[in-house]
């Protein structure tokens, strides 16, 4: 399937391994990525905090660009925060025709118009709802046997449920568990899996921020996870990049690799850990690499 692909900022900035692994994984799943390289930052809720109309208009611009991609079935993102921030803006744009017209008026000088009703799905949702976990499972070359994986969703992709379309038919706040199982792995549930990583207040209350990250990482260690997986690169920054600092704040040793969602999928689809950028993490995913080596060894 062809999608208007919105990679977000961080996947092309501080977590390039996310963008890279997505590019590697897509063809294996017959996803054609048409990158929205003209799109702009979603604002991460911060621009909305400054000026809501500005955030709405900026996102309407990206949406309008997505709607111009010919043959694309939908817009896909790879960042929980983009998903949440964009959906919030879209909610307002879709709810009120007058407001939509008002925002489109601002966009008009660039020949852009946002039309109500864009479908914008995170890669996670797309895997479950568009590709299907059965199809995905059939493509698995290296099942995640014996790999104990803890999901870390990121707030923006699980709350609020109504806005994000989470309901009985679309239990999107449980897709990660299903996905890990479909890839052959073992799901590790732990207290922090749907909590906040702390990133939004890292510059405002560093202690509280790192305490959040550290607590969740510690909980995952106590639950004996080999690694975490997250669809959110901002969570990744606090959980991986800041892990050494978080360890100091919670005063315990932390050694918890955190994978991006496409990396985990890529591993199961048989890609080389190196190609997926696993070596670029601050916390070396030794357990995961060892695991993949052992799988390769036993296969040999």
């Amino acid at each position: 399937m062809k999608v208007a692909y919105w990679p977000g900022c961080v996947s092309r900035g501080f977590t390039p391994e996310l963008h890279g692994s997505m590019a590697k994984v897509a063809p294996l799943l017959d996803i054609e990525l048409v990158e929205l390289d003209r799109g702009n930052c979603c604002g991460a809720g911060v621009i909305a905090e400054h000026n809501q109309e500005l955030a709405d208009t900026l996102n309407a611009r990206t949406f309008a660009l997505a709607q111009q991609v010919e043959g694309a079935e939908l817009m896909m993102n790879i960042c929980s925060t983009c998903q949440g921030a964009q959906t919030e803006c879209q909610e307002r744009l879709d709810a009120n025709a007058q407001y939509r017209a008002h925002v489109n008026e601002t966009l008009s000088s660039d020949g852009l118009t946002y039309e109500k009703g864009l479908t914008n799905k995170n890669f996670l949702w797309l895997l479950v709802e568009e590709i299907g976990l059965d199809t995905l499972a059939s493509k698995v070359r290296r099942p995640l046997t014996n790999l104990k994986v803890g999901p870390f969703y990121g707030c923006y992709i699980v709350r609020p449920r109504n806005r994000l379309g989470i309901d009985d038919e679309h239990p999107r706040d449980h897709y990660m568990e299903r996905l890990i199982e479909a890839l052959g792995g073992t799901v590790i549930e732990y207290a922090g899996m749907r909590k906040c990583c702390g990133f939004p207040i890292i510059t405002m209350n560093k202690d509280a921020s790192l305490k959040q990250a550290g607590t969740h990482l510690g909980d995952a260690m106590d639950a004996e996870a080999d690694c975490l997986v997250t669809p959110c690169p901002l969570c990744h920054l606090n959980l991986d990049l800041q892990q050494p600092l978080a360890a100091k704040v919670v005063a315990r040793k932390l050694e918890m690799p955190v994978l991006h969602l496409p990396q985990l999928v890529g591993l199961a689809l048989g890609l080389d850990p190196k190609d997926l950028g696993l070596s670029r993490h601050v916390v070396k995913p030794t357990s995961v690499i060892d695991w993949s080596t052992s799988v390769v060894a036993s296969a040999a």
Binding site: C9, V10, G13, C41, A44, V46
Partner: peptide
Amino acid sequence: NNGHRHEEAFTTLIRDYGLLHE
């Protein structure tokens, strides 16, 4: 908490770059 500065910084960065420059 530096919250407002952070927000201003973020907002002006997007104005200047279009994308976030961490």
